[in-house]
Design a protein around this nucleic acid. Structure first.
Lengths: 251, 251
DNA sequence: TCCCGTTTCTCATATAGTGAGACACTAGGC
DNA sequence: GCCTAGTGTCTCACTATATGAGAAACGGGA
């Protein structure tokens, strides 16, 4: 969408109407809805009737309207991790541009980290690609995700070793990893100090879903001789995480 | 909606497009979407662009489309209990017609049962109204809902007595109620044998949300001298509960 | 560099939504 | 039991507006 593409007003109206009806959770009859958005009753009626017929809204015996089965079905099908990734992308682009680091977002599946968003320039960009799956125990994002797993799940993961060393600094002992994860969870962020690749350092923080689960983690990485200490990246990174949470939730 | 109201095709198209894009969870670019539903690319582009601009869809760097923040916002605004009630209404009407009993759906709020749907003819219809809140410990619906509460919540409820007797058969002793609830949970249904009103008997079963929580209960009640034994109502009642669950979830 | 698939844009045409107003229910007051 | 007020439903002439063919800009991959 470069710009100036004419938009489909009917689509806006559809969603606006859905929003309006859902907004007051089943309090409204047609007349109230119409009044609420300043629209002729006849029009509101026709539109709502359509949504009801299609099953996106439901109407009870007292002619009041709430979410219908189709809407529920649709919303239950949503993949929360994709949503977070989608909402995160613009925030991460900005962070990468402002910090001059490589910024990524990853989620946890099948004991591996899936990298879903990646942005920013620099040599640090060489070590991963979008869609790639990497081991979790050594990267910043991986540590954050592991640290926020349910206890039994994390214990099970730690029992799946051995954990190969990728550099001289990789933590490979399960107990040492467990300690590190405990620390990460307590402090709310993780560092990777050349544990994945020599010269690559990063800081990572969790992104939380409104219900408190950690669905993703974001990291800011640098590579080479001249890097800022990762602590310096934390404030911007945390701010970005808050931004993402706000976008993904509030709309 | 009696019938024949002209419907707004644009609304259908809007939701159809949303559905189509969500269906393949972020795999699709514009061209693929257009092909998938047999629509000119130009049109698909305009429509999707609108949804993206409004925030209902999001587009990643690779031009692939998934759910956007507004859609998430919607998801979080849904009142699950209302949804269940809405989806249940038609099923319950049918059940009432076929069984000749009074059928109701209730949910649990603030230690009381809220009656959200009520249908069917007969004297049994005298004892409640939609929107009414009644004590939980004595009715069939109330027992089912209490029995499926988290343990600590149920214990807290049982400590709130005393529980007044509404008829000679009302169970009023907290320990006896606890036993009854244990039985109800184990067997998956409850009876009310004239414990709320003399001559009123009912059977009740839980309605489950897809995540396993019991959000509502439905009951089938009869009143008077000539009533069928409540056990006979159970098969139809359970079938209705399954129906409701299917509607409320699958769409 | 030249492709090919994809995305974006333009514009004449016809489809399809709008809203005023009339009519039909329903509930509640008297 | 009748009336009234508040809703919900329907009809129809008017026009706003979505459509889709085609062409132009991208943008990777060979």
């Amino acid at each position: 969408m470069r710009n100036g593409t004419p938009k489909v007003a009917a689509f806006r109206r559809t969603l606006a109407m859905l929003d309006a009806v859902l907004a007051d959770g089943g309090q409204s009859g047609i007349a109230a809805i119409a009044r609420g958005i300043g629209m002729p009753v006849a029009t509101a009626h026709r539109q709502v009737a359509t949504l009801v017929e299609e099953g996106y809204l439901a109407r009870d015996a007292a002619r009041r309207h709430i979410a219908g089965p189709r809407l529920i079905g649709m919303l239950h099908r949503l993949d929360e991790k994709q949503i977070v990734a989608a909402c995160a992308a613009p925030v991460l682009h900005r962070l990468a541009a402002e910090s001059g680091t490589v910024v990524q977002l990853g989620t946890f599946e099948n004991d591996m980290v899936t990298y879903r968003v990646k942005t920013g320039q620099g040599a640090g960009a060489l070590f991963s690609r979008v869609g790639m799956q990497l081991e979790a125990y050594c990267s910043g994002i991986g540590k954050v995700l592991l640290a926020n797993l349910p206890d039994d799940h994390r214990r099970a993961y730690l029992a799946t070793g051995p954990f190969p060393a990728l550099t001289a600094r990789t933590i490979t002992d399960p107990d040492a990893i467990a300690d590190e994860l405990e620390r990460v969870r307590a402090q709310g962020f993780a560092f990777d100090a050349q544990e994945v690749a020599d010269g690559l350092v990063c800081a990572a923080v969790p992104v939380m879903w409104p219900d408190g689960r950690v669905l993703a983690a974001i990291s800011s990485s640098q590579f080479g001789e001249q890097v800022r200490p990762p602590e310096e990246l934390l404030p911007a990174l945390s701010a970005a995480a808050r931004d993402i949470e706000r976008t993904a939730f509030g709309g």
